[in-house]
Design a protein around this nucleic acid. Structure first.
Lengths: 217, 217
DNA sequence: ACCGGACTTTGCACCCACTGCAATAATGAG
DNA sequence: CTCATTATTGCAGTGGGTGCAAAGTCCGGT
């Protein structure tokens, strides 16, 4: 392997190499896709550019798409979830979801990965299809969020538990609207070239959501 | 070809055969995917089941996915769009979008296709991934809707045209929320086994959206 | 410094999705 | 019935993706 890992990441050689390779592959696929288009690039070219064999590419990413999509936010820890569930009806539920998602978005430090984030932002902005793919790959998070929102709704007003179908329906609607907020935040963030943090955009989008909800436009 | 077309559809033999084949392929892919899973079925099997060659399969659908996803709603005609754009600020914008989308959803008659619709509903309900794929394939409609919503916002209050970036941001948010409504409507519709029309679910979901917006839960 | 077990990389053979092309068959208009 | 149009198919080829086993790398213990 010809990967010059700046030795920042802690851990053994293995760990460091693994991260470096992962970054190299993402850098390669994003760079190549940016000037030839996603379909104009083969895994063979990507692997070559990243300095690994095609077979190794698939040890790191299950599909070519996965490499451009990158890591997707995960559900925050149980503590943050409990805080959300038991915040009480005083807090608007969308506000609660927003704060919950903020902890999801903040993770993923990845030193040496700033350029990757930027490349990805540019690419996904230019190709709506890839952007929707990324959103689609958050389906897991979405499903988990639905059940957390259900818990919250029951906590706020235990009567709703009496009608599970309606409860589920509401939880899903809240979740879908929240995801509309995420999509919006990401779009804005990409459009302004990554000015400020994604977290700030998320706050803006949810605020705007409240404005829309109040029917002010 | 061994397709027994009940001769309902008008038009020449060609047209009828084409529709029959298209239906046969969809029926085949949906049926097979329902008991072996989407990945457990090959195009060869699907084509055989539908009574066509594998090559012909790809004359009807660009990908295996496209066959399960089926036709996706399109933007309604210019007349309906104009009605939406110039409805005036008296009508809430989400209500307007809802009505606009109702005309999109109502099309697609496809006689002989009732069973296909039902199979598809069952399959997509069981496989969230396929459902998100279907939503993702509506990206085109979504993009068009954004620009229509922009026109509406300008029509309602021409001052917003002075800040194009903000205008675009708002239009996108409205559109994303509307799509949250569509997703919700579709989920509910699939979950109740297709009871009632999808259009009715859409109305329900948008009503619920207003309730959520008013912060009533 | 060396050894042996654990993990990684790679090549190879293979399956399947998908495409362009050219031959053949079905349709429809006059 | 004829011929232009359009649909179907086979074939050969590209590229994504996987299982397996061989070879290479890392790391902890001695």
């Amino acid at each position: 392997m010809t990967v010059t890992a700046s030795a920042r990441p802690q851990g053994g050689v293995r760990e460091r190499k693994r991260i470096a390779t992962r970054n190299a592959i993402q850098r390669a696929v994003l760079t190549l896709a940016l000037d030839r288009g996603f379909d104009g690039v083969t895994v063979e070219e990507i692997s070559h550019e990243a300095g690994v064999s095609p077979r190794t590419f698939f040890n790191y990413f299950p599909t070519k798409e996965a490499a451009v999509i990158g890591d997707v936010p995960e559900m925050p820890d149980a503590e943050a979830i409990d805080r959300f569930v038991s915040a009480g009806a005083g807090q608007s539920i969308l506000e609660g979801v927003r704060d919950l998602l903020l902890s999801s978005v903040d993770q993923e430090p990845n030193p040496d990965g700033a350029d990757i984030e930027s490349l990805r932002r540019t690419l996904l902005r230019a190709h709506p299809y890839l952007f929707t793919l990324r959103m689609a790959s958050m389906k897991q998070l979405e499903l988990e969020l639905v059940s957390v929102v259900e818990r919250r709704l029951v906590h706020d007003d235990s009567r709703v538990a009496g009608d599970p179908e309606r409860l589920h329906s509401r939880a899903r609607l809240v979740t879908y609207v929240a995801f509309a907020g995420i999509r919006h935040a990401w779009s804005c963030w990409a459009e302004t070239g990554g000015r400020g943090a994604l977290a700030d955009r998320l706050i803006d989008s949810f605020t705007e959501l409240q404005v829309l909800a109040r029917g002010e436009y």
